[in-house]
């Protein structure tokens, strides 16, 4: 098993992602430069957070046309697990692998804080170990994280259980006060219909050691690893 961490110019969580995978979970992971055109030899891919291409035009708008993205789209269509974190989520939306868009936070402020999120479905490779609406603690750090999607697509997302994470309070309740950015229906993360592509604004890559304030991020990468290699042979 080997996991790719894509580096775009302006990515700044690529090292966090690699360290989370290699140091946090002892999983084989390697950087893949955005100019590369193939993901052969990899079993999953992470699009890290940051400010790819300076977030010019719109977040993720230019990264979406990077050479590696063709391979990401192709692999995603073939069923490879793809996870986009923060800026990676924005790129997945721009690339059309996920519906909707991330727009400016309602407060107009960059938010950098710890939040609670509730796992809405265990039916993805990234949440398979997280049944029963677990509540996780993770940091967020973004200026454009307000999830928006038109009403019809929102209905589809909800009816097909594609909302994977929602912002909640500490007890797991969806409240206006626990929504840090104005996301519609408190949405923090969604998956595609085939359930192999996940985008989320919170940072599991910054929550894999108690020293970082939370280890809950390991649960997501851990689920992915066990989905890829069900026999625990690591």
């Amino acid at each position: 098993m080997k996991i790719a961490v894509v580096q775009f110019p302006g990515s700044n969580c690529d090292q966090d992602c690699l360290r989370a995978l290699t140091d946090g979970l002892h999983l084989p992971a390697e950087y893949v430069w955005h100019k590369q055109t193939s993901l052969s030899g990899f079993d999953a891919v992470v699009l890290p957070g940051g400010f790819s291409y300076g977030d010019y035009l719109r977040c993720g708008a230019i990264a979406r046309f990077s050479p590696i993205m063709r391979a990401v789209v192709r692999s995603a269509k073939e069923g490879m697990p793809v996870i986009g974190l923060c800026n990676g989520f924005q790129i997945l939306c721009e690339a059309g692998l996920l519906p909707g868009a991330l727009i400016r936070n309602q407060s107009l402020r960059f938010v950098c804080q710890s939040i609670w999120l509730r796992v809405e479905t265990g039916d993805t490779p990234f949440t398979a170990n997280l049944q029963g609406r677990r509540v996780l603690k993770m940091p967020i750090a973004h200026g454009e994280g307000s999830y928006f999607v038109d009403e019809r697509s929102l209905e589809t997302l909800e009816s097909k259980n594609q909302v994977v994470f929602r912002y909640v309070d500490e007890t797991g309740d969806v409240t206006a006060g626990s929504n840090p950015n104005g996301s519609i229906h408190n949405i923090a993360g969604i998956c595609n219909e085939a359930r192999n592509v996940l985008g989320m604004m919170p940072h599991p890559d910054r929550a894999w050691d108690r020293k970082l304030g939370s280890e809950d991020g390991k649960l997501i990468f851990g689920s992915l690893a066990e989905t890829l290699e069900p026999v625990v042979s690591r």
């Binding site: 719109r58 230019i62 519906p99 909707g100 868009a101 928006f148």
Partner: peptide
Amino acid sequence: DLLSNPVI
């Protein structure tokens, strides 16, 4: 495809 995002 690039200059605008038709979703928003």
